[in-house]
Amino acid sequence: MSIRAGALRGVFGAPVSRYDQASALWLLAPMLAVLLVVAVFPVLYSFWISLFDLRLTRPHRVPFVGLDNYLEVLQDELFWSSVWRTTSFTLMSVTAIMVIALAMALLLNEEFRGRRFLSAMLLVPWAIPYVANGLMWKWIYDSGYGALNGLLFQLDFIDKYMVWLGDSHKTLALIANAFVWKEVPLATILLLVGLKSIPADLYSAARVDGADLWRRFVHITLPALRPSFMLVMIYETMMAIRHFDLFFILTEGGPAEASHVLAWQVYVETFRKLSFGTGSALAYIMALVTFLLAFWLIRTLGRKL
């Protein structure tokens, strides 16, 4: 297309409509204001704090320490073991979530009587507060009278009641189980949305070509589901990395340090040791990691709204 000079003059970057440009800004203003105050400002402020040795136990002397807090955190052995525990908690949880949610989504994608009831019941774990979820599983895992012991005992899997959460080899997996139970519904719904968007023609065509159930799953369902699968997986990864509530309710990082994950360490640094400087540095490292992960998400999926 040819562009004449006259049409170019002084119009580059002009809005589609000045009225629209102005009204869009007005309509967006409240959201931008709120997000600046409650999201952007805290992130910047948090970085600022992380450069100081700020301790609430010693509020009048706050020396500037530069990146020392970061060095201190990175040299802390507990930090690296927390990273390891966070990673293994995340891997366990996300794997289980994806497997269970995929199975449930495939079931709900079928047409049968009672499907609506199932999808309504699916929302029960999703709606339950994490605190109640924690108490519920604490009671189930209880070493004295818990349902897990009772069930395994009645089924003759164990011959005497056992310690569960208190056993440092089992703690992380048991917390992961409680986390998975609550996260599965949302993952299922998101995967179901992905499944529903696969055109039915594809399946008919494959059936005509003689592909059996398994082949249809491998060659049509899985590739078509890839984007939503990725989206859910990365979302759940971020949720698992930052998860705090269950660690607080179920174990408080224990026994010993068996469930001492990063989120818990931030809490301990800031609100038990009251060392806001290192706490902020820790939180900043966490934020940065999740941020990069999210960036990777946006890039990989090439999202556009």
């Binding site: 971020m238 989120a263 931030v266 941020f291």
Partner: peptide
Amino acid sequence: VIPDIALVVPF
């Protein structure tokens, strides 16, 4: 994307 826990101290 910012983890809640990173908001805690500044908040």
